[in-house]
Computed example of a mutant assay.
Amino acid sequence: MFKSFTRLAVAAAAAATMATPALAQDEGEWSGNVTLTSNYVFRGITQTDEAPMVQGGFDWASDSFYVGTWASGVDFGDGTSTEIDLYAGWTPTVGAFDLDLGVIYYWYPDAPDNPEQNFFEAYAGASTTLGDTVEVGASVAYSPEFYLEIGDAFYYAASIGIPLSEMFSVDATVGYSDFVDAGGDYTDYSLGLTTSLEGFDLDFRFIGTDDDAFDEYFVVSVSRSL
């Protein structure tokens, strides 16, 4: 099926489903992560035909720089079974804002060649803390030739995170996919509850879009840092 963004990111998430770079250290440091999710959803669209999937990645960080890779199984209904993300970025702090500037390459090694599924994105994000606890952020990602060679595409996102207690926090994200040349723009949203237990991070998340062509999902993920 049509793939509208897959991570970060940014994302993130961004989330999902995006790899999360390790925090910068004065000296170079390796870190890893592994996740079992009930459904890999990227920018509001399932990447696994709503099936569970194992994901994981490795990062290296030094000072304000990081590089890493992240991988997941996928199911687009065309024989594509694997996504591998390669990324690098810079995380300076300017005043009260933490920045994240970088590039990411989405690689599908067993995908059909025509049209091309692999693509690059450049991304920029900023986050800050309001008061002592409320985290807010915004980001933008740009691809000069998005998935399936549909041309220019932007992805805009805004997020907020609020701790409920020492164990639980909630977060919400709203994103907008702007396909400059192809059309079909849409908005996606995510509302999550997160906690940690015995070294495992648990994420319970409701995800949807304003496009009736896509379903709404309740996703449960369990992850662990390595």
Results as ranks from 00 to 15, higher is better:
residue 162 I to A: 15
residue 186 Y to T: 08
residue 146 F to W: 09
residue 107 W to L: 06
residue 129 T to E: 07
residue 26 D to V: 14
residue 176 Y to R: 10
residue 81 S to K: 13
residue 9 A to C: 08
residue 88 A to Y: 09
residue 177 S to N: 13
residue 225 S to T: 10
residue 193 L to D: 02
residue 109 P to A: 12
residue 3 K to N: 14
residue 128 T to G: 06
residue 53 M to D: 09
residue 133 T to S: 15
residue 200 F to M: 15
residue 59 D to R: 00
residue 54 V to Y: 11
residue 35 T to N: 07
residue 95 G to W: 08
residue 164 L to N: 09
residue 134 V to I: 13
residue 170 V to H: 02
residue 5 F to L: 06
residue 198 E to H: 03
residue 111 A to S: 11
residue 186 Y to G: 15
residue 164 L to V: 01
residue 46 T to I: 02
residue 81 S to Q: 12
residue 59 D to V: 00
residue 196 S to Q: 12
residue 202 L to H: 05
residue 162 I to Y: 15
residue 82 T to N: 13
residue 154 F to R: 06
residue 86 L to V: 10
residue 43 R to W: 13
residue 15 A to K: 01
residue 1 M to C: 10
residue 220 V to Q: 04
residue 103 V to Y: 12
residue 12 A to S: 13
residue 121 E to V: 05
residue 106 Y to M: 12
residue 39 N to G: 08
residue 14 A to W: 00
residue 172 A to R: 00
residue 82 T to A: 15
residue 153 A to Y: 01
residue 177 S to L: 14
residue 196 S to L: 01
residue 208 G to Y: 01
residue 176 Y to E: 06
residue 89 G to L: 13
residue 111 A to V: 02
residue 184 G to N: 06
residue 216 E to F: 01
residue 158 A to I: 04
residue 134 V to R: 05
residue 115 P to Q: 06
residue 166 E to S: 15
residue 211 D to Y: 04
residue 24 A to T: 00
residue 171 D to P: 00
residue 32 G to L: 02
residue 88 A to S: 14
residue 203 D to H: 04
residue 100 D to S: 12
residue 206 F to M: 15
residue 142 Y to E: 12
residue 26 D to Y: 03
residue 158 A to D: 03
residue 221 S to E: 06
residue 208 G to Q: 03
residue 127 S to Q: 10
residue 44 G to R: 03
residue 101 L to V: 14
residue 174 V to I: 14
residue 103 V to H: 08
residue 164 L to K: 06
residue 186 Y to V: 11
residue 114 N to T: 13
residue 166 E to V: 04
residue 28 G to H: 03
residue 28 G to N: 06
residue 57 G to R: 00
residue 156 Y to W: 14
residue 146 F to D: 11
residue 166 E to C: 09
residue 105 Y to G: 14
residue 134 V to F: 11
residue 57 G to Q: 04
residue 78 D to I: 04
residue 20 T to K: 08
residue 4 S to C: 08
residue 78 D to P: 02
residue 48 T to A: 09
residue 102 G to F: 02
residue 191 L to R: 02
residue 74 V to A: 09
residue 36 L to T: 00
residue 161 G to R: 14
residue 118 N to M: 05
residue 135 E to P: 00
residue 5 F to R: 08
residue 165 S to R: 03
residue 182 A to G: 13
residue 1 M to Y: 09
residue 216 E to L: 09
residue 156 Y to V: 06
